[in-house]
Amino acid sequence: MEAWEKELVARAQQGDRKAFTRLVIEHQNRVYSYLYRMLGNAYEAEEVAQEVFIAAFRFIAGFRGEGSLCTWLLRIASNMYKNRIRYNVRRKRSMESCIDDKVEQPDYRPIGERPENPEALLATQQMENALHEAISRLPEDFREVLVLRDIELLSYEQIQELTGLAEGTVKSRIHRARSQLARLMSGHLDGEELV
């Protein structure tokens, strides 16, 4: 954790709401993105992300700074996500129905990063939708480590800290998740030029 973040955490622990807001600004994308990929639903992801930060505000006094704040927040997000899944199961809501809104999701990427050609934009959007759906079909254990490693770009150590899994298990799950995803995406990968 960098010095500026440590200072913000210390101030937030004293009840400084402005400092906590700065921390939210700093980490909201990562927390939201993780939840969006895990839940497959923008609305639910935002709702749970709110809960994560409210919980973080409540319990930040107990954050000892042994790990990174990001990992701590993602661990809260992981727990909240699992609670939400249990809640959804109780309400008999299938996760398949939750990904229905993905096509309507706006493209949040900066304009410069989007393809300018409408056909290319459409193709990219279709590919992203297919990938998003394929990720949502992975078993939960595999999906979590894949999202943390390949989307959130966390190190193996951070993933171990967050999940409490051994390094070998983390690597094995990542590999198996990628392999399953490759199989699910085989139709889309054929002839796809990615380089």
Binding site: S33, I151, L181, L194
Partner: peptide, 8 residues
């Protein structure tokens, strides 16, 4: 492809 998807 996954990494290109990137954080949302």
């Amino acid at each position: 492809l996954i990494r290109r998807l990137g954080p949302r």
